[in-house]
């Protein structure tokens, strides 16, 4: 078909103007922008972790570690180049170009770490990855807390605030697109085969270690991108933003959404980001007591843990199982027979 070429960039061409208009319309609503950005970052994290945990059937619980790598790398990069203006470019454009480079740099560094962590642990059975990623998350945190150049426990300040609604949600959209296209590619079929039965997949000639490591690297890259974006809209990043708690939050999102369902991950990421914010607003609106707000925060982790246990015992497939949102309407599936 001669129209084939448009299919690749088409979704981007549709979403880009919508997001631009939305960004333009909400410029004077700082709280909305902040909330929407946090939600977008969580969507990126959930969807990218789903590539490893849902589609490939491994179990990583150190996603916040990769996010931290991306955040610190990109933040440091941007801060170092804060006063620099690229020649021949107006200031705004130059800033955005440097921002883009910083985000990609953060992603690449996270991907490199993903490779280093994934290669030894993914040769083995799934449970090793869980422990090693957990350990990796801790090493990163210890490293950040002990490194003078990265601000130790105080964190990195003075990162230029260059992120925007458009940037965050464009990245989120691209992550979703990549995740979906991975699933429907031959690469993705191999990943699904590994999830369903690793031994059988290997017997059919799938290079299981190679595919697992590549999936893990892609996932780490997007976690790094999420961290990089995060670093450019919060006033300060410090090691306490990237602890177990963050990793577990993402794990709960994808387990609740259904391991392997990209739309499920998106949906639960949005719900689980907005719900605590709403709860906090509702609970603390009467009494402005910070004590209560603190208590709500404290309750999060035990609730996350209990949710995981309850989900596994009662509904291990989560909200959607491995299905997508549109699979709920069986009529919309004639594409399966399309050549």
């Amino acid at each position: 078909m001669s129209r084939e070429w448009i299919k690749g960039p088409l979704p981007v061409l549709v979403v880009l103007p919508i997001l631009s208009v939305l960004t333009y319309a909400t410029t004077d609503m700082p709280f909305f922008i902040y909330l929407a950005s946090i939600t977008g970052v969580n969507v990126i994290l959930a969807v990218s972790l789903n590539i490893v945990n849902g589609i490939t059937g491994q179990f990583s619980i150190g996603h916040a570690g990769f996010m931290a790598v991306g955040a610190y790398a990109a933040g440091y990069f941007s801060r170092a180049l804060a006063g620099v203006q690229l020649v021949f470019l107006p200031e705004v454009v130059s800033d955005q170009v440097i921002f883009l480079v910083a985000v990609v740099f953060g992603g690449m560094l996270a991907a490199l770490f993903g490779f280093l962590v994934g290669l030894p642990s993914l040769r083995l059975r799934g449970d090793y990855l869980a422990i090693v990623t957990l350990g990796f998350g801790e090493i990163i945190r210890v490293f950040l807390q002990n490194t003078e150049a990265l601000g130790r426990a105080l964190g990195l300040r003075g990162i230029p605030q260059r992120s925007s609604l458009l940037a965050v949600w464009m990245a989120a959209f691209l992550t979703i697109l990549v995740a979906r296209r991975i699933v429907s590619s031959s690469h993705g079929r191999s990943l699904l085969a590994i999830r369903e039965d690793e031994v059988a997949a290997e017997a059919m000639g799938v290079d299981t270690t190679g595919y697992k490591v590549r999936a893990f690297v892609v996932s780490s890259f997007f976690a790094g991108v999420a961290g990089a974006l995060f670093a450019h809209f919060v006033p300060i990043i410090n090691p306490s933003s990237f602890t177990f708690v963050k990793s577990m939050e993402i794990v709960v999102m994808i387990v609740a959404g259904g391991l392997g369902s990209t739309t499920g991950a998106v949906l639960t990421a949005i719900i689980l980001t907005l719900l605590p914010e709403q709860l906090r607003t509702v609970l603390t609106s009467g009494a402005e007591g910070t004590d209560l707000a603190q208590r709500v925060d404290q309750l999060r982790m035990p609730i996350y843990g209990a949710t995981l246990v309850a989900l596994m015992l009662l509904r291990p497939q989560g909200l959607f199982g491995t299905r997508e949102l549109w699979d709920l309407w069986p009529r919309s599936q004639p594409k399966a027979s399309d050549p």
Binding site: F59, D127, F244, M248, Q298, L308
Partner: peptide, 22 residues
Amino acid sequence: PRLTALITSIGISFTLSYGFQL
């Protein structure tokens, strides 16, 4: 599947260690 038990154990672990912090 083995993964469900692993996720459950992670859930129990976090419920206990963070529950005791309340």
